[in-house]
């Protein structure tokens, strides 16, 4: 108990003194997860919209696969990306293993199905609502998708947030493909795992507090953005 209490006090000191290690690790975490979410949203949102608006032969199967992929265990994704990027793997020549890029790739694979799936559900509901109007107005396929994505933007923001939540807190995959190398690929979650193992509770708790704080901050920021947008528009 004493250990933990001392840990908390030291953690607060680390945060207040803007400890360089703490900052470096936090920024890398943000950089990796935000990049991954942006890429995943760029793929996932149009994919979700496309699946909602188009009828094709294997639509149901595709959606079922997408939903199943949401539950992919990150460790398995990590293993998969590791094999692809390892020196003997097909993309080994790129030398990406143990870099933030490898971590981003793994997180994109983890987060894209989640974003696409939530986006698909939201857009499908809106499409049911708008269907007759958009058909009646002779909209092109492209216009339909743009209209639906725009009008479902709040639900889609939530999808992106859920993706970010999953990415920033994820440890299994990035541990494997990033290797938790100091000053290269160490991020909040992998650092916490390491420091806890070493028994350095101060740094572990400090990192934990930052992790929670970051997650809250990003949520609040995006929420307030959508708030100002709402009052601006309406």
């Amino acid at each position: 108990m004493n250990d933990i209490w001392r840990g908390v006090v030291e953690a607060v000191q680390l945060i207040i003194s803007l400890d360089p290690d703490l900052i470096e690790i936090s920024l890398r975490s943000l950089q990796v997860s935000i990049t991954a979410v942006i890429i995943a949203a760029t793929i996932g949102l149009p994919l979700g919209a496309w699946l909602a608006v188009n009828r094709f032969r294997f639509r149901r199967t595709t959606i079922a696969v997408l939903n199943a992929l949401m539950g992919l265990p990150p460790v398995v994704v990590g293993l998969f990306v590791y094999i692809l990027l390892s020196r003997s793997g097909p993309f080994g020549v790129l030398g990406l293993l143990y870099t933030p890029t490898a971590m981003i790739i793994a997180q994109v694979i983890i987060v894209t199905p989640l974003i696409a799936s939530i986006a698909h559900q939201a857009i499908r509901d809106l499409w049911t609502e708008y269907h007759d109007l958009l058909i009646s107005l002779n909209t092109s396929r492209r216009q339909r998708m743009r209209t639906l994505i725009w009008d479902a933007r709040r639900a889609l923001l939530t999808a992106a947030l859920a993706g970010f939540g999953r990415a920033i807190g994820e440890v299994g995959a990035i541990m494997i493909v990033g290797g938790n190398i100091d000053h290269v690929s160490r991020v909040l979650t992998t650092a916490i795992a390491l420091e806890t193992g070493k028994g350095d509770f101060a740094l572990a708790i400090g990192l934990g507090l930052v992790l929670i704080g970051l997650a809250i901050a990003v949520n609040v920021t995006i929420h307030s953005i959508s708030q100002t947008e709402r009052t601006g528009l309406w």
């Binding site: 109007l133 209209t147 528009l233």
Partner: peptide
């Protein structure tokens, strides 16, 4: 339409 379709816009 019998039930007006109102878009989520202004």
């Amino acid at each position: 339409f019998q039930t007006p379709i109102i878009m989520r816009r202004t």
